[in-house]
Amino acid sequence: MKFPPKNLAPPDAAARRASRPVICYPINDLPVLDPSFYERARCELALISKTTVPPRDAATFEVAAGCFFRIVCAEGPQVGDLNLWNADDMDERFFSGKTRALHGTHVSTGDRLWSNLPYMRPMATITHDTLDWYGWDDDGGSVHDVIGTRCDPYTNVLLNGCEYHHCCHSNLTRAVSKEKRISLAEAEKHVHDVLNVFMCTGFTLDTHQYFMKASPVRPGDYLEFFAETDLFGALSACPGGDCSASHSSENAQCFPLTIEVYKADPAYTGDWQPPARSTYSGGDCGAGSRWRLRSD
């Protein structure tokens, strides 16, 4: 619900609204992405692992830097919530907010998934998207969003007054806890905002509220990534199925998802190296130093 304004528009309201938008983060100066490198690298791929994510559950996986991985629609329309961490340091993780600021509300081929501060580097690059034909629909919706946070039991209690234990947040927490052999409380601290894979979302044109609609994904569709760093990942098969009606539900028809990891032929990757973390020095503290309060 949106409340009507209580204040009259000033005489220059039209002029204020007419100011031109300015892109907050122009990406022309980002490190140059060479599409031909990724096309060459994916020419000959060898499948090295396959992980099934059961409906209304999550699974973890690992991808070595320089390898590819695909999230595949296996049996029926299904969306997934993806978390990524540096395999050697879980303090470095996918930063959906900065990815959104750099690449927009929805991502596809050529866009990158960036890590959080102070690391701020590409973790993965999207190299193929079988749903790139979808574009934008008449409702303003598109697929693979970095808007939503993930369905979670806390919001479910707030809005519905009941507990549900297979929200994507819960699924990811359990999967991380199991794989890393840590408590649920510790694992929950690592779970973060997601890439909503295959999910079709946008903002309503009247109230500008976040919406979802039936995903266009079908069996055989996939979203493919190149691992820019060694990755530890977790993927939840959302309890909303294709999210055409609701999420956090036992009523939606749900299907498994598959994670496939591929090794590229070294002949095509050449002397490629993982990107370095941010070179920001930390202000006047010097490179690699911790922040300190200035005495002046």
Score class of each variant (00 low, 15 high):
Asp132Asn: 11
Gly233Arg: 00
Met212Gly: 03
Ser19Glu: 13
Thr60Val: 05
Ala14His: 00
His128Gln: 13
Ser289Trp: 01
Pro10Met: 07
Ala18Ser: 10
Asn7Thr: 14
Arg42Cys: 05
Arg93Trp: 06
Ile182Phe: 04
Tyr222Gly: 02
Glu92Met: 14
Ala276Met: 09
Arg290Asp: 11
Thr269His: 05
Cys243Ile: 14
Lys189Ser: 02
Asp193Gln: 09
Lys213Ile: 04
Glu75Cys: 07
Tyr134Arg: 02
Gly240Ile: 11
Pro118Gln: 03
Phe198Lys: 10
Asp111Trp: 01
Ser183Arg: 04
Phe95Leu: 06
Glu62Asn: 13
His169Asn: 12
Tyr154Cys: 07
Val217Arg: 03
Val194Phe: 00
Cys168Ala: 13
Asp265Gly: 01
His103Trp: 15
Lys213Gln: 09
Arg100Gln: 10
Asp29Val: 03
Gly141Asn: 11
Ala264His: 11
Val157Thr: 13
Asp34Thr: 06
Gln78Thr: 02
Glu228Trp: 04
Trp114His: 11
Pro55Gly: 08
Cys285Ala: 12
Ala59Asn: 07
Met90Val: 11
Ser295Glu: 08
Ala264Tyr: 11
Ala18His: 00
Val53Pro: 05
Gly202Asn: 02
Val143Phe: 07
Asp138Ala: 15
Asp111His: 13
Leu235Gln: 10
Arg112Cys: 02
Gly220Trp: 07
Thr52Glu: 06
Gln273Lys: 02
Ser244Thr: 11
Pro4Thr: 12
Phe203Leu: 14
Tyr154Arg: 15
Asp81Glu: 15
Thr155Glu: 11
Arg93Glu: 01
Gly220Ile: 04
